[in-house]
Computed example of a mutant assay.
Amino acid sequence: MTTEPSQAMRPARAAQLQSIQALRAIAALLVVFGHAAHESETIAERIGLAPLHTSFLHSGGGVDIFFVISGFIMVHTSAGLFGQPGAWRTFLTRRIVRIVPLYWLLTSLLLIGSLFLPQLLNVPIGDWRHILASYLFLPSLRGGYEIRPVMALGWTLNLEMLFYLLFAAAMLLPLRRGMFALSCVLVALALIGAAFQPSQVQLAFWTQAIILEFLFGCLLALLYRQGFRLPAVAAAASVTLGLAALLKWPGVDDPSWLPQVLRLGLPAALIVGGAALYDGAAPRLVLPLAVVGDASYSLYLFHPFALRPLRDVWVRVVGTNLPLEVYMVVAVAVATLSAMLLYRLVERPLTIWFKRPSHRDGDTHRSIYPAA
């Protein structure tokens, strides 16, 4: 039985959630930047310009931030449900309602588009088994060499769904025992992957060490629940250090030999920890970012639909008339604005419509994407 937060605690909690929403925006924008940079390379090759140097940033770190946020939010919003009858069912229903409709809609749109504009695809669509696996969030080989669904970005959702299932199972126990069991399972999976390096597709995918990033977020949420807070200086230092670790510094060797969970996962944990555990009001910069964060799931999933046509339009219409730096700004802006429209016109109405039967339960969960 949980108690309602006091009036004094509610503003702090609201500020903390705004900070998390702002981080969702930053994480999604990092991913968009990385993919826009990739498209700029294609543009440069087609029109004969020198490519941009965007390798200074580990833009893929946005995914790691999403995974840590996911672990944090799941514990933060569901801690009071642990050990309650039927809680696991309520949790999974909320997650499915929140994640599946938009993903299935865009996957279907991609499949239809591939029939008419196959040239926009980097990798051809697989057979019916691969398509079915994509809809069911099951890891499957795409193109015979990479474990990706029809929508390549959906690989993160395949890991998310595994985490949700494990989290739901942990909810059968009281919070402490459930979180201990969840921690043991996640660590065991990562150790199996590191020790045996399985070749079976699903097992290889589900035993990646990156799954430990969900655990990082869970542990941060437990610290938050215990009342642990960071003063402004410590919180700012944590976020700054984490962001600095996502940059590639001149003269400093890139530790590519480290597994991603250490190379990018730990910086992501520092960033999320600094924002989530900060003991104070959210900075003003957080507010506009939080608005983008609301649409971060749409932004994560939809931005390739915006970037790929924009690339071809840019080659045909703009060409060498404007530098590629302008393309990068336009690409990020177009992806962001289109995603915010998609959120308002499609994602949000879909979510409201699908959750109506269980509306009496309420829904404090918010998307983690994207993500997460």
Rank of each mutant, 00 (worst) to 15 (best):
N321M: 15
A282I: 05
L115I: 13
E347Q: 13
V334F: 05
S358Y: 15
I211A: 05
P124N: 12
G143Y: 04
A22I: 02
V75C: 03
G293P: 15
S296K: 05
A244C: 06
R95H: 02
I43C: 01
L109Y: 01
A170K: 09
G293D: 06
W104M: 00
Q21M: 14
A295I: 05
L106M: 11
A339K: 07
R10Q: 08
S70T: 10
A372I: 15
A237K: 04
L132V: 14
L30R: 07
V346T: 08
V315H: 09
V261A: 05
S70P: 06
F66R: 07
V31I: 13
P149V: 00
M179A: 14
P139A: 05
R311L: 10
H359G: 15
L57T: 09
R129K: 08
R95E: 03
R148D: 10
L172M: 13
G83V: 04
G178V: 14
A170R: 10
R142D: 03
G265F: 02
F137Q: 01
E325F: 06
G280V: 07
W353Y: 15
R263L: 08
P255R: 07
P323C: 10
G319C: 10
R308W: 06
P101K: 01
L203K: 10
V272W: 02
A36F: 00
I69L: 13
A237S: 06
F82W: 07
I147Q: 02
H365Y: 15
L258R: 12
A169Y: 05
P198E: 09
Q260L: 15
L165Y: 05
P139I: 04
M161E: 08
M179W: 12
R229C: 10
M340Y: 07
G80F: 04
V201I: 14
L277N: 00
L247T: 08
Q84T: 14
M179S: 12
L310N: 09
L219T: 06
E45Y: 02
G113W: 14
V332C: 09
P101R: 01
L29W: 04
Y164V: 04
W353S: 08
V100D: 00
A268Y: 06
Q226P: 00
F302K: 13
A37S: 11
V318H: 10
A50S: 11
R225A: 04
V123E: 07
K355E: 13
G193I: 06
P349V: 15
G143A: 10
F167V: 01
F67M: 09
P174K: 09
L29A: 07
H35Y: 06
V286T: 12
R94E: 09
A339N: 02
D363R: 11
L30I: 02
L121F: 04
P283H: 14
F72Y: 09
A269R: 14
E4V: 12
A27H: 04
V233P: 03
A8D: 11
N122S: 12
V63F: 00
P139K: 09
V233N: 11
G280F: 12
T240W: 13
I368G: 13
